[in-house]
Amino acid sequence: MNRRLFCLATAATLAGLPLASRAETLHATLYKNPDCSCCEGYATYLRDNGFAVDVKPTNDLAQISLNAGIPENLQGCHTMFIDGYVVDGHVPIKTIRKLLTERPTIAGITLPAMPTGSPGMVGQKRGPFTIYAVAKDGTVPTVYATE
Rank of each mutant, 00 (worst) to 15 (best):
L26A: 15
A68T: 12
D48T: 10
C77W: 09
G16A: 03
T25P: 10
F51P: 05
L8T: 06
S65P: 06
Y85G: 07
M80C: 13
G76E: 02
T10A: 15
G41Q: 12
A15C: 14
L66E: 12
C38Q: 05
K56A: 12
C39T: 10
C38M: 01
I70E: 06
A28R: 00
R22L: 02
I70N: 03
A12R: 11
D35H: 03
P18A: 07
N33P: 02
L30I: 09
N33G: 04
Y42P: 07
L46F: 06
G84C: 02
D60Q: 08
D88P: 15
C7H: 01
V86G: 02
F51K: 05
V91F: 06
A11Q: 12
L17H: 06
C38H: 01
D35M: 03
L66Q: 11
A62G: 04
L46T: 06
V91I: 15
I64F: 13
Y31L: 03
G76M: 04
G50D: 05
A68I: 11
N73M: 06
V87E: 06
G84H: 00
T44G: 14
L26D: 12
K32L: 09
R3P: 00
E24A: 15
A43V: 04
I64Y: 13
V55P: 14
D48F: 02
V53I: 03
N67I: 03
T58R: 02
G41W: 05
L46R: 04
A28S: 08
V86P: 01
F81S: 05
V87G: 09
D60L: 08
I70D: 08
N73D: 08
D35F: 08
G41A: 06
D35N: 03
L8C: 09
A43H: 08
T13P: 00
C38Y: 03
A23R: 12
I82M: 01
L26P: 11
Y45D: 14
N67H: 13
C7M: 13
C38L: 01
L8W: 07
A68Q: 02
I70T: 10
T44N: 15
L30K: 11
L74C: 06
Y85P: 03
L17R: 10
A12F: 15
A11T: 07
T44F: 12
G84Y: 00
V55S: 14
A43T: 14
L8G: 11
E40P: 00
H78N: 11
L19C: 00
L66A: 13
G16R: 02
D48S: 13
N33R: 12
H90P: 13
H78I: 10
A11G: 14
T79A: 14
Y42Q: 07
T10I: 13
A12H: 13
T10G: 07
D54P: 09
L8D: 04
P57W: 07
Q75E: 08
T79E: 11
L17D: 11
N2D: 10
E72N: 04
S65G: 04
M80G: 11
N59C: 09
